[in-house]
């Protein structure tokens, strides 16, 4: 499998490390210290840490280019065909979706 790196072009998958679901970018934030132990906060972190969609189809996931430029990528991959539909730098994705609702 090859991953179309946004800066470097097609690079072999052996240079990358897989982390998991790209929803990890959307960590819940708690602005009010009084809310730290609340049920709503615990539920949000429980969902963030443990609950994953497991789609047969299009999936956004985090890959790390360890043996390359050390960038984190958000790769959109079809889990049934391994076709890669999109690849973006995670820093760009995180910057664009900062504050946006988790998808």
């Amino acid at each position: 499998m090859q991953i179309p790196h946004p800066l470097l072009g097609l690079r072999d998958a052996s240079e990358f490390v897989y982390l998991g679901d790209a929803s990890l970018l959307n960590r819940p934030s708690v602005d009010d210290p009084a809310e730290l132990g609340s049920d709503a906060t615990l539920d949000a972190f429980h969902e963030y840490l443990h609950l994953r969609h497991n789609p047969a189809g299009v999936h956004k996931e985090l890959w790390f280019h360890e043996q390359g430029d050390r960038s984190w990528l958000v790769v959109t991959r079809d889990t049934t065909t391994h076709e890669i539909l999109d690849c973006a730098l995670a820093r760009d994705v995180a910057g664009a979706s900062f504050g946006a609702e988790s998808t």
Binding site: L8, G9, L10, R11, D12, S14, E15, Q67, G68, D69
Partner: peptide, 17 residues
């Protein structure tokens, strides 16, 4: 695993792999 064809990896190109 790099493609070292000159059209992809010309003189002065550099890559970590």
């Amino acid at each position: 695993p790099l493609d070292l064809d000159e059209s992809v990896f010309p003189i002065d190109a550099v890559a970590r792999t």
